[in-house]
Simulated assay, not measured.
Amino acid sequence: MTFVSCNDDFDTPPMVVPQATHQPNMTIADFKAKYWKDVNNYIDTVKEDIVIHGWVTANDVSGNIYKSLYISDGTAGFSISINGTSLYNTYRVGQEIVLNMKDCFVGKYNGQQQIGYPEFYEKGSVWEASFLPLATFQSIAELNGLPAVNKVDTIPMSISDLKTDAETLKKWQGRLVRIDNVRFSDADGVNTFANSDATTNRNIEDENGNTLVVRNSNYATFRANILPLGTGSVVGVLSYYNTSATKLDGGTWQLYIRTADDCIGFSSSTKGLLTDPYTVEEAIAGEAEGLSGWVSGYVVGAVAPEVSEVKSADDIEWTAPTTLDNTLVIA
């Protein structure tokens, strides 16, 4: 008789913590300023021994951000255009990346300053910073340590902060920001983040009427989610889009959310929308709280002429035809 046994107590392989060999010697803010040009498309080559670093603030995990990473070192944010997909598998939010920039390219693509690769735009007869080959990016980018989400800085700001002068563009492009007390202008309980056939712009609006485009891909995992209702906070990375051949200002600020979780504190209730109106009883109960929205009921009469405040049944005409047709009573 033969006995066979197996040992399932395998040794756990050691965790390999990546360590960069290059040391940063310039902040992102200083790097952006050094290579900034007041045009909407250009490309420049870094000839000096410059090393920058940053923690990943946004990637392509949901499909809303396309072939790009965003990083920040606390002084500024920066976008990196990369001809690759599923970047989030390696470059997770909170992962520190060290970039050896010598002989690499920086420029703008339609107003957005970014690390990229030279491409000639024939229609505009200009060079621009387009997608950096993935292999090239991998050759200059070193991981340093394990992802640390606590290193990701989210900057509170207001929509009104977004001007289009050069200093504002340098400051806010590529930043992960949080904007509080805003609502989605198109939120009606029906509209989704994006249409099924195209990238869709949805505006957020603050209490002063300032608006900002939230740009949503039809490939995003949250595309079909209903737009959040009510008022809340939105987190995302800022981009700037300008196709003018001559004007630096006049472009459009755009916000890209990373996942649906970047919309915080909004209401999930559809009550008061056209698809889910209040009853008359609910509307009366909420009047003192400033409740607003659609109300469903049956027309039972109209306010009598010269009555400014209904105090009794005598102030209402209950039978048709009524004298007035623009002050109806429902129940």
Rank of each mutant, 00 (worst) to 15 (best):
G63C: 11
Q113P: 08
A58W: 01
T27W: 11
S62T: 08
Y109M: 10
V106H: 09
V51F: 10
V39P: 00
K67D: 11
L87D: 00
R92K: 10
I65L: 05
W36Y: 09
E96D: 13
V56Y: 13
G107V: 09
Y66N: 15
N25I: 13
Y66V: 07
V93R: 04
K67Q: 14
G84A: 00
N40A: 07
V93S: 07
Y66I: 14
V93G: 09
K47C: 13
C104V: 10
S62I: 01
I82V: 15
V93L: 13
Q114D: 07
L99I: 07
S68T: 03
K102Q: 02
T75M: 02
G107Y: 01
T27M: 12
V56L: 12
I52C: 08
T75Q: 03
T75I: 04
S68A: 14
E96Y: 15
I28W: 08
I80N: 12
N83Q: 13
Q95H: 00
V61E: 06
K108R: 12
D103P: 11
S72L: 08
N40Q: 03
D38A: 10
G63M: 08
D30T: 11
Y109W: 06
N59R: 03
Q113T: 14
N41R: 02
F105Q: 07
R92V: 10
A58H: 08
T57E: 15
S68E: 00
T85W: 09
T85R: 07
P24V: 14
T57S: 13
C104D: 15
Y42P: 05
E96W: 06
G84R: 02
I71E: 06
K34E: 02
T27Y: 08
G111A: 00
S62W: 01
T27A: 10
G84F: 00
T57V: 15
N41A: 10
L69Q: 02
G111K: 03
L87N: 01
S81E: 13
D49Y: 06
G84D: 01
S86I: 08
Q113K: 14
S86A: 13
N110R: 12
D49C: 12
K102M: 05
D60W: 03
S81G: 10
